Structures are given as C-alpha cells and as structure tokens.
Simulated scan of single mutants.
Amino acid sequence: MELHIAAASIAPLLGWAVHGGILAHRLAAARRDPLTGLHTRAGWTARAERLICRHPGAAVLLVDLDHFKALNDTHGHAAGDTALIETADRLRTWCGPSGIAGRLGGDEFVAVVRDLDAAGIDALTAALHRPLTYNGASLPLAASFGACLIADLPLPALTDALTAADAAMYATKGRGRRGPRTSR
C-alpha cells in the first residue's frame, strides 16, 4: 500500500519536472533566431553586457546587409534567407570564442568581441563581401558595419556603444560602402 501511495505522489512531481523542462527549452529557443541560429536581441544583450564588463577593450559592431531588398526582389526570398544564414555563419565564425553575434531582425546583425584590431576589421570586411553561392550561381553579398570601442566611451554602456556603432555604420554607408568605420 505504501508503494502505491509513493507512486501516486511521484506522478505529479514528474509531470511538473517535465513541464519545467519543456518551458526551459522554449525559453532558450525564444532567445535564438529560428532562421540563423544566432541570439536574438534579448539573448545577445545579456551576454554582450557581461562581456563588455569583463573586457574593457571590447568592441561592439552593428552590421547591415547592403542591397538586401534588391537581392530578395531579384532572386526570391529563399535567396534572401540564404544570404541571412550565410552572413550569420560568417559573423559567428569571425567572432569565434572571444565574442558573440546576434541578429536584431531583418538584415541587421550585431556582434561584440573582446579585441578589435585592423586585421580583425579586414578579415570581417573580406568575409562579409565574399559572393554567395545560391542555386549554382554566384550572387554578390556585401555589408556595411560600424564599430565602437568600449574604451572610447565615457561610461562602458552597451546602449551607448550600439548608438555609436550605428552612427559609424551610417557614416560608412554615406561614404559609398567602402569599408568600416569606428567611432573615434
């Protein structure tokens, strides 16, 4: 009889444990972009804030695909999705273990890395400007980005770094998309 009572009291606990596991999985999935697998704004922000607190030499980058609407309109949404996935992969690879990449939405991406030097900027520029292979064709892929070095800010705040990176990115777009700028 005691075994029967023990089993009956374990069943609800097991149900709550399974339910909790499902909820935890759904929360984790909500912090990832379903198309690219990158962190969404909320998931990226929490990690980025921790990284910039630990590494005062960190840099925040904002990345925007160039001519994305034309690519989508000319080659279809599947080609656009492929461009987003490829950009995410290139940005994730460039960040490596010393940074974190995210997708803000649309064709906007964000990253934070511990250190940013000229070689890193050149490598990112090359990665984001390599053509995209889609259905056997080579399609042009390009992105503009701006960077903000945390050390250049009066206070190391992520929101200020994103604002400065955004301004640097639009300055780059205004120069004809010929490379990145940093906020200095």
Rank of each mutant, 00 (worst) to 15 (best):
T82Y: 04
I5G: 00
A161T: 03
R47I: 12
S183W: 13
H55E: 13
T93Q: 14
S98Q: 15
P34F: 04
L13P: 00
R54C: 02
S183C: 13
D117H: 07
L35G: 10
I22T: 06
A118D: 14
A42F: 03
R32N: 00
G106Q: 02
G21S: 02
G57W: 00
L132G: 12
N135W: 03
I10R: 12
E108G: 03
A29I: 01
G105S: 05
T163N: 13
H4K: 12
A59C: 10
W94N: 09
A137V: 10
S183V: 05
A111F: 06
R90S: 02
A8G: 06
A111M: 03
A7M: 13
D73K: 06
G96C: 08
D33M: 06
I121H: 08
T36V: 05
V18M: 09
L84I: 08
K173E: 02
R114W: 00
R26C: 12
G176M: 01
T36M: 06
A24H: 03
A28S: 15
P180F: 06
A59T: 09
T172I: 01
S144K: 05
L3I: 12
T133A: 14
R175A: 14
A167N: 10
E49M: 08
R26H: 15
R31W: 00
A119P: 01
A157L: 15
L162E: 01
S138L: 14
L27P: 00
A11K: 14
N135H: 13
G76P: 07
A137R: 15
R178G: 14
A28E: 15
P156Q: 06
N72G: 01
R47Q: 14
P34Q: 09
M169W: 06
T74R: 14
A28G: 10
S183H: 14
D89W: 12
A123V: 03
I150C: 07
W94F: 10
R54V: 01
L141E: 05
R175G: 13
I10P: 00
H55V: 12
V60G: 10
G106E: 03
T159D: 15
L35V: 03
P154N: 05
R41Q: 01
D115P: 01
Y134T: 01
L116M: 08
H75S: 11
C148S: 10
P180C: 12
G174H: 11
A6L: 15
H129R: 15
D117G: 09
D117F: 03
H4M: 11
I52Q: 07
I5Y: 08
P140N: 09
E86T: 15
A127G: 11
L153N: 02
G96Y: 08
L132P: 11
D115H: 15
A48Q: 05
A8F: 07
A78P: 02
L153Q: 06
A123M: 02
H4I: 10
L62H: 08
G146P: 08
W94K: 06
L128R: 07
T36G: 06
D160F: 00
T40M: 14
R54W: 03
L132T: 09
R177K: 12
I5Q: 14
P180M: 06
A167E: 11
Y170S: 07
A79V: 03
I85P: 01
T163G: 09
A142R: 09
L27M: 12
G99Y: 04
T172E: 09
L84R: 06
I121C: 13
A119I: 03
G146I: 04
